[in-house]
Amino acid sequence: MMKVTEIMTTDVETCTKDTSIQEVATQMLNLDVGSIPIVDTNGGSLVGIITDRDIVIRGIAANFTLDTPVGQIISSELVTGTPDMDVEDAATLMADNQIRRLPICEGNKLLGVVSLGDIAVKDPTDRNAGAAIEDISKPSQSND
């Protein structure tokens, strides 16, 4: 079984809760990513994640200004994986929670991020990656 540590991105750009919506959006543009992990200013512990969708739905649509700290709009209910997790288990966790990126943490310390793309590229024949993509792409049952 392949472990998530074999395929995860370890050079992950982060920001803090004090970073402005504008700065995070610019960071996403420059890095060509759709999410940025949020860490505390002290030890780098993961405290949340912000997605491009958070910026649009919780930020712009809620009339926050671009200089608003992202701490006001981040997703703080985190789903995380561990470094000893199998890729198959990560894909299942991502599918069950309809997420495309899974922060990998030891305790609260961010070690890296696994994306569906990482899983699909590493083994294009992996049925779990395909199932995860299919499950994540289904409309959620919430009233969002």
Score class of each variant (00 low, 15 high):
Met1Ile: 05
Lys3Leu: 15
Val4Gln: 04
Glu6Arg: 13
Glu6Thr: 06
Ile7Cys: 13
Thr9Ser: 06
Thr9Phe: 01
Val12Lys: 02
Val12Met: 12
Glu13Ser: 09
Cys15Met: 14
Thr16Arg: 13
Asp18Thr: 15
Ser20His: 08
Ile21Thr: 02
Ala25Asn: 04
Gln27Val: 00
Met28Ile: 02
Leu31His: 06
Val33Tyr: 00
Val33Gln: 02
Val33Pro: 00
Gly34Gln: 05
Ile36Arg: 02
Asn42Phe: 08
Gly43Arg: 11
Gly43Gln: 07
Ser45Gln: 15
Gly48Lys: 08
Asp52Val: 08
Asp52Gly: 14
Arg53His: 07
Ile55Tyr: 00
Arg58Gly: 03
Asn63Lys: 13
Asp67Gln: 06
Asp67Glu: 09
Thr68Leu: 01
Val70Ile: 15
Gly71Glu: 07
Gly71Ile: 12
Gly71Ala: 07
Thr80Tyr: 12
Met85Ala: 05
Glu88Asn: 14
Glu88Cys: 13
Asp89Trp: 00
Thr92Arg: 15
Thr92Tyr: 07
Thr92Val: 15
Leu93Pro: 08
Leu93Cys: 10
Leu93Ile: 14
Ala95Val: 03
Asn97Lys: 11
Ile99His: 05
Arg101Ser: 04
Leu102Thr: 09
Asn108Asp: 15
Ser115Thr: 14
Ser115Asn: 09
Gly117Asn: 10
Ala120Arg: 07
Lys122Phe: 05
Lys122Ser: 12
Lys122Met: 04
Asp123His: 07
Pro124Thr: 09
Arg127Trp: 05
Asn128His: 11
Ala129Val: 07
Ala129Tyr: 11
Ala131Met: 14
Ile133Ser: 14
Gln141Pro: 00
Gln141Phe: 11
